[in-house]
Design a binder for these strands. Structure first.
Length: 340
DNA sequence: TCTCACACCTTTGAAGTGG
DNA sequence: CCACTTCAAAGGTGTGAGA
């Protein structure tokens, strides 16, 4: 598949989204997606450093098929759906790159999940970490990514604890769960709690679900009481500057924070009269105008489940600042004492 | 390949305004 | 008092020059 095709696919996917999915928030899901490669879920990190995901990716890529990877992953009755799956899929087809900087850079697309199957009154903690897919480093040849040697020693895994943690299953299931505040850095001395990665390496985000009641200070992310979900389409290359010019164009066009002539052109192309147009492709300015009909809502709400908010299906939810990121054991210890 | 300054843009919240 | 609008500061983004 040509990279230019990826770009056109993404644009058309965003413009021609089905009306039946308008209630699904920012991310929309094709109901009858015919993907043949499952997302993965596992108790603990049984897949180690993302070997399974790597295999899946290779399969998807070697097929040369533009088919989307599935948005859902189920384990033990708990279902996690990658809410902005189509955007991830389109980026994935062009081999997603994420900028990392010394001060930390947010991901775009970021990970947003819809969760179901939790015990409504049980408390859970949600965490995300980002693991190397393999032991290789890569280089951009101008056309594609190629292995260029062995990976640097992997750094101590840092977890990003969702700022709403711990919350009841009911709350987690009520609204999409976003990790948009997660920042990536290559600064090994980082004190801000950002996730530390090596540039020119391949990574895959992991979502971990821990019951706050059963968690102890000894809880390990790869333990049996931690359920881990991964979505191969969220794999990305960490870079300090975009390598693939198409990727930077993707980002500039679809990230509301990005500026540039391309994004302007695209916004003009998407006529405001188009009823099918959904929030993910609306300019945030438009979203603001919509939002001003009611009380102020968080930017995340504006960028995500806007239709639901407007229809009163979801309540505006102001999220607290992310907590500093202690070691998982220390954090879980705090949770334990908090719940006493 | 990486860093940094820059321009551009959105978000946020306080202050102002009118009913 | 409430809802809405306006505005400025803060912060996120990609770009491009230079190391």
């Amino acid at each position: 598949m040509l990279i230019t095709d990826c770009y056109e696919n993404l644009k058309s996917a965003l413009i021609n989204r089905p009306t039946s999915n308008l209630n699904a928030g920012m991310g929309y899901v094709i109901a009858n997606e015919e993907a043949n490669i499952p997302a993965t879920s596992t108790p603990g990190s049984a897949m180690g450093t993302g070997q399974m995901a790597s295999t899946l990716n290779s399969a998807a890529r070697s097929n040369n098929q533009p088919e989307n990877l599935p948005p859902e992953s189920t384990y033990s009755g708990i279902k996690v759906m990658l809410d902005n799956n189509n955007m991830w899929n389109e980026f994935f087809k062009c081999k997603t790159e994420m900028i990392i900087t010394k001060q930390g850079r947010r991901m775009f697309p970021y990970c947003r999940f819809r969760i179901s199957g939790l015990e409504p009154f049980q408390k859970y903690t949600l965490l995300m970490d980002i693991n190397p897919v393999d032991n290789k480093c890569y280089k951009w040849t101008g056309q594609d990514w190629q292995m260029s040697g062995k990976a640097e020693a992997h750094l101590l895994r840092r977890v990003f604890i969702h700022p709403d943690s711990p919350s009841s299953g009911h709350l987690w299931m009520q609204n999409p769960v976003s990790f948009y505040k997660l920042k990536l850095t290559d600064n090994t001395m980082d004190q801000e709690g950002n996730v530390i990665l090596h540039p020119m390496h391949r990574y895959l985000p992991h979502l971990h679900l821990v019951s706050a009641e059963t968690a102890t200070e000894d809880t390990q992310l790869n333990g049996t009481d931690v359920i881990t979900f991964t979505f191969p389409q969220t794999e990305f290359f960490a870079v300090t500057a975009y390598q693939n010019v198409r990727m930077s164009q993707f980002k500039a066009d679809f990230n509301p924070f990005a500026s540039g002539p391309n994004s302007q052109a695209l916004k003009l192309k998407m006529s405001p009269s188009n009823e099918l147009k959904k929030d993910e492709t609306r300019s945030p300015k438009e979203l603001n105008q919509k939002a001003s009909q009611s009380s102020s809502v968080s930017s995340e709400a504006k960028m995500t489940g806007f239709d639901e908010l407007l229809q009163g299906k979801a309540k505006p939810h102001k999220r607290p600042e992310p907590v500093p990121l202690p070691l998982l054991a220390l954090y879980l210890q705090q949770l334990k004492s908090k719940s006493r």
